[in-house]
Simulated scan of single mutants.
Amino acid sequence: MTRRDGLIRVIDSLHAEIAAMRANDVTALDRATREKLVAIEQLGAVAGGGLEPDVRELAEEAQRLNETARIYVNLLAANVRRRLQMLAGDAGGYRPNGRVAAYG
């Protein structure tokens, strides 16, 4: 496998992860994440010196997609936290008695 091939696999996996998060498809997210981790591991085993311009562009695209995936994860986590707070009667960080909830 070349660096170019490995980066393309990582990029495809990141696209699949983002699509799965958008669709709330846990099975697809698990599959895409496993594929991404395998691709990254294989990419790490590729020996070589500097990056050619097209490979550098692929690496930069992978970094942008990874940042997008990170943002989605943070949004999903915030939504889960908000829902849990609502279920616990702690919507918005305020208790029903009007006192601000303490967070540790």
Rank of each mutant, 00 (worst) to 15 (best):
R34L: 15
R34W: 13
R34Y: 12
R34I: 15
E35A: 07
E35M: 06
E35P: 01
E35K: 04
K36Y: 05
K36Q: 04
K36W: 03
K36M: 01
L37S: 11
L37A: 07
L37C: 06
V38H: 07
V38N: 04
V38W: 04
A39Q: 12
I40C: 08
I40W: 05
I40F: 09
E41Q: 08
E41M: 00
E41T: 00
Q42H: 05
Q42K: 02
Q42Y: 01
L43T: 02
G44D: 01
A45Q: 10
A45Y: 02
V46S: 01
V46A: 01
A47M: 05
A47T: 00
A47C: 01
A47H: 02
G48S: 01
G48V: 00
G49E: 00
G49W: 02
G50V: 09
G50L: 06
G50F: 03
L51D: 14
L51G: 09
L51Y: 11
E52T: 13
E52L: 11
E52G: 05
E52N: 09
E52A: 12
P53R: 00
P53D: 06
P53S: 01
D54A: 03
D54S: 11
D54H: 08
D54Q: 05
V55Y: 02
V55K: 04
V55L: 09
R56I: 02
E57S: 12
E57D: 05
E57F: 07
E57P: 03
L58K: 03
L58R: 08
L58M: 10
A59L: 14
A59I: 07
E60W: 06
E60G: 06
E60I: 02
E61H: 01
E61A: 04
E61T: 06
A62L: 08
Q63N: 12
Q63V: 15
L65P: 04
N66Y: 15
N66K: 15
E67N: 14
E67S: 13
E67I: 12
E67Q: 13
E67T: 11
E67G: 13
E67R: 15
T68N: 04
T68Y: 06
A69G: 14
R70K: 14
R70D: 13
I71P: 02
Y72K: 08
V73D: 12
V73C: 09
V73H: 09
N74R: 11
N74M: 13
L75F: 07
L76E: 10
L76R: 13
A77R: 03
A77I: 03
A78M: 06
A78Y: 03
A78E: 08
A78K: 07
N79Y: 07
V80I: 13
V80S: 06
V80R: 03
R81F: 10
R81E: 10
R81H: 07
R81Q: 14
R82E: 08
R82S: 10
R83G: 13
R83M: 12
R83S: 14
R83Y: 11
L84V: 15
L84P: 11
L84I: 13
L84S: 11
Q85A: 12
Q85E: 15
Q85I: 11
Q85G: 15
M86I: 12
M86T: 10
L87C: 05
L87S: 09
L87D: 14
